[in-house]
Design a binder for these strands. Structure first.
Length: 344
DNA sequence: CGGTAGTCCGTG
DNA sequence: CACGGACTACCG
């Protein structure tokens, strides 16, 4: 085993490619085999190293590795602090689009998702980019998107993302890795299969699960806690807690084939859910939060009243903030609609 | 916050 | 006539 480890190097393989650096494992790295290694590199790969595209793609506020076969990310990394999650960036000004940095033949397109029954789920969420319209725009590139169950996307996963953002209020930095998994299932004969749908003309892969790794850091940017989670790509209701989906990082690493933090001895990092609560927003608070967002976005009095009526329908108790929000938005819309009437 | 879909309208 | 952008309405 040690000889394999010794044979792994990182460097520029100039005999194979003019540019780029590769991680290479030599089966034999002793002196006698050196010439045959060189010979193999010049003959077997005479026409270059088979290219799966860039290992990583760097954006303003996230970095990802993209799978050109599945047309989804492999992993998406973020480092967020409280400065990232507040600001004027507005998702309504942005549309999903193919990543201009991905070759057309390996791109997902909006048409793959539309009418597929699957929603376009962010890995690096738009809400982590409130500080920058440009960064938020980049998060809408389809390289950062995968087919996600709609209810999961707007529900449990949404609350998980909110929890991550909430952590920035208590801890200096939050490091997040997100991505898809296709996990095996067992059929009636006890045989194990990996089976997943593909959608659209580009056959975008629909993952069976989504994962998230969360690392919180203290003022010295040292890791305080780490949690790994694997969430089924299906509706998850309020009866489930985040802890229901917590797994050992090692398990996720084996499932995904990814060591997320090669330079960090993760075994020594305490469990995130022991350091922090790992409690997602509860139903009532979540409903009230969504009503607040919708009140702000209401374009007509009719819609405003419709949203406000949910308070009674769902037996919720609005706080003063929400009541003030409703009243001020009502005033604005009343004025706007009066102006329109007078013009007409 | 997270999304979808319908309608109108200009373009090739 | 098909398609894509902009806008509106709407859902959890």
């Amino acid at each position: 085993m040690s000889q394999f480890v010794k044979g792994i190097i990182t460097g520029t393989f100039t005999t194979l490619a003019a540019i780029g650096s590769y991680r290479i494992l030599f089966e034999n790295d002793n002196q006698e085999s050196a010439s045959s290694q060189t010979k193999a590199s010049e003959t077997i790969l005479k026409y270059g190293i088979p290219d799966r595209g860039p290992d990583i793609r760097v954006y303003d506020n996230h970095i990802l590795s993209y799978d050109q076969a599945k047309k989804t990310p492999v992993w998406v990394a973020e480092y967020i602090t409280k400065r990232n999650i507040d600001g004027p960036a507005d998702r309504r000004k942005i549309k999903f689009k193919s990543d201009p940095n991905v070759q057309t033949e390996f791109s997902a397109e909006n048409s793959d998702y539309l009418g597929s029954g699957w929603s376009r789920g962010h890995m690096a969420p738009a809400g982590d980019n409130k500080h920058s319209q440009e960064a938020m725009k980049q998060s809408f590139y389809l390289s950062n998107i995968l087919p996600q169950n709609l209810e999961n996307n707007g529900g449990f996963w949404n609350r998980l993302e909110m929890y991550c953002r909430d952590l920035t209020k208590k801890y200096k930095g939050v490091r997040i890795f997100s991505g898809p998994l296709v996990l095996p299932t067992t059929d009636e004969n006890g045989l194990h299969y990996v089976k997943y749908p593909v959608i659209g003309k580009n056959e975008v892969s629909v993952p069976t699960h989504l994962y998230k790794v969360i690392i919180i850091e203290n003022e010295k940017s040292e890791p305080l806690g780490l949690g790994a989670f694997i969430v089924p790509n299906q509706p998850i209701g309020f009866e489930h807690s985040l802890k229901d989906f917590q797994v050992d990082l090692k398990k996720l690493e084996r499932s995904s084939g990814i060591i997320f933090t090669p330079k960090l001895d993760t075994v020594k990092i305490p469990d995130l859910c022991q350091i922090d609560s790992c409690n997602l927003m509860k139903r009532d608070k979540f409903e009230l939060y969504m009503i607040g967002r919708k009140l702000q976005g209401a374009r007509s009095l009719k819609y405003l009243e419709k949203i406000w009526s949910e308070i009674e329908t769902k037996n919720l108790t609005p706080d003063s903030y929400l009541i003030n929000l409703y009243n001020s938005r009502k005033l604005e819309l009343t004025y706007e609609e009066k102006v329109v009437r007078n013009k007409g």
